[in-house]
Design a protein around this nucleic acid. Structure first.
Lengths: 330, 330
DNA sequence: AAAATTTTCGCAAACGTTTGTTTTTTGAAA
DNA sequence: TTTCAAAAAACAAACGTTTGCGAAAATTTT
């Protein structure tokens, strides 16, 4: 079946295409009676404007691109869900592509975005990617780029992220408050700036405010590794009494070990993590965590995007603040 | 900055637009030397074909639409990730919209898809939606619709889903194998066909093959409800020895209660669920589950979509088979 | 060297809109 | 009735491609 077009409507009504077009958008030049006729026919013929023709004519696509490392991720999916809502209520649709932490995919995705003339892109850097120039090129083409979560150091871009340092410090504060003696702090992939920031802030805070607490720092690249680190530090002579988990991935590994060793939370061991809350609430007692909300971040990112698209450049790095959520694990 | 177009390239090289166009797609009519020149210039001027112009001309959009109830969902996100991969490697991009279980949103999403002339749509019905006709309308416009997971009863459509009955039966089998005496089976939203199918199959199987096992059946609409049901049935006179969870949502609630009551798995209580595996593996011992893979389903859905787009209609209901994954909980 | 091919390229229309400009119609004022 | 302004509608160009068809240029055949 062929789609209804303005031309078709015009022919049926024996009027010109431009009149139909204007009638449909309630243009003052058109009389009420023709408007009524046009609308009625459009309705009955299921007229749907062709977005491609519109974009071609207006150079404005109403589509936003999103690049995430992975869609199936507890943090990113809530981020995506959030900007999807915002976008829809503002008349935009989303094109979502995953980089799978692969710079090559990232480039390909960007190309798809350019070809589809997206009006803007939200991007989360894949761990290794340092091909920032290609993003600059998008900016040059007046396609605003808003980085989120994992952002480049370069400050030519608009960035939104969690207040990573604050998150880490909040966790540290609560560890001190618990009166911990021996702490294991497990961080993520060493190459990520997010890891570096959190770790540096955490370490500094502990040294400054509780130098007597014995802290062990490790980096776990996977759940499995976290599980093993935990096994080592929870037994033997080391016997830690509190563990800090930088991500959900790590928390999951830690909790496996805790359950396996049948340690009691919070008596035998205190647990605190940085998370959006889903994983910590899976356990009993609920794990205390510093909240990083993909939802909040998404909202912020969208606001920044709109600002970028409307006015001139707003080259700022915004952060959404953290919040400590007490479970029963500390 | 203005985008590079065929016209621009043509002007620079003092040749016609059509020649440039053909050169770029390696058309045999064009000499090797001009091809070289054109490609070189296109390269240096960062030429990116305008997808909108192409679609307008060719009536073929290379975009697929996806409607899910929610993106942040352990099952759907893996489904999405899966078709995203498939799509990308086949030159398609994805437009993802969430219905949030709201029929109104669903309709709006469909409209966006029509306006963007997507080449096909993957749809998962939101619980209440019975406005199937609008999907039929898409089919009429030669936009194939592939339903997944929650599918309509109507068999004018292509559908892919988990083998729900098999899943339930497999779970039942393992419950019998465990020598359970008192079982609590918690199912999800009563209105969903998926719930009905699983429940019916489960009940029938238990009655047919183990009529002596005492089974209690309940429907929990949320994690919280599952948690409470579990609390009731695990204590009191009832004292069940095995619990079956139809979804991750339910499993989470059940596990909270189990941890709270400090029941030992599998000694005090056996647990089995239907899941994609993420949640069951969070616990120690790992929970045994019947696997429903969003990933697999995504692949299957994509294949069906391609078949639909290429050839004529393939009005079949395909299912991906289930697999029992033994954890330590039975 | 003319004729017949074959290669290579350009012309022009079309896809479905939007929008500035022009034309026609309408109705009121002169 | 004529004149004029306002209102309503039509015209036409443009957005960036693709593609059938015809034209020119290069090459081969007589």
């Amino acid at each position: 079946m062929t789609n209804t077009t303005l031309k078709l409507l015009a022919q049926q009504l024996q009027i010109s295409i431009s009149t139909v077009s204007r009638a449909l958008k309630d243009h003052p030049d058109i009389s009420a009676s023709t408007k009524a006729k046009v609308n009625a026919l459009a309705q009955s013929m299921d007229y749907e404007p062709n977005a491609y023709a519109i974009q071609l004519r207006t150079q404005n696509s109403k589509i936003l691109g999103v690049i995430v490392p992975a869609i199936s991720n507890l943090f990113y999916d809530s981020f995506i869900a959030s900007i999807e809502e915002e976008s829809r209520s503002n008349g935009y649709a989303l094109m979502i592509l995953q980089s799978s932490h692969n710079p090559e995919n990232e480039l390909n995705n960007l190309k798809i975005f350019r070809q589809n003339r997206v009006s803007g892109v939200f991007a989360c850097l894949s761990s290794s990617s340092e091909n920032i120039e290609v993003y600059q090129k998008m900016n040059d083409r007046d396609i605003p780029v808003v980085f989120f979560d994992i952002v480049p150091k370069d400050n030519r871009f608009t960035k939104v992220r969690m207040a990573d340092e604050r998150c880490a410090i909040m966790a540290a504060e609560n560890i001190i408050k618990r009166n911990a003696k021996k702490v294991l702090a497990i961080f993520g992939d060493e190459n990520l700036s997010i890891t570096q920031k959190r770790k540096a802030a955490f370490q500094k805070f502990m040294q400054d405010f509780a130098p007597k607490i014995h802290c062990s720092y490790v980096n776990a690249a996977s759940t499995k590794q976290a599980e093993e680190f935990m096994k080592i530090y929870a037994t033997k002579a080391l016997k830690i009494d509190t563990v800090f988990c930088m991500t959900d991935e790590i928390l999951i590994g830690v909790m496996r070990t805790i359950q396996e060793l049948q340690l009691k939370i919070p008596k035998d061991i205190g647990v605190i993590s940085i998370s959006n809350g889903f994983i910590p609430n899976l356990y009993y007692p609920h794990i205390s965590y510093v909240e990083t909300s993909g939802h909040e971040l998404g909202k912020l990112a969208f606001i920044q995007m709109m600002a970028n698209m409307k006015g001139g450049k707003t080259l700022t790095e915004l952060t959404v603040d953290a919040k400590f959520i007490a479970g029963g694990s500390m």
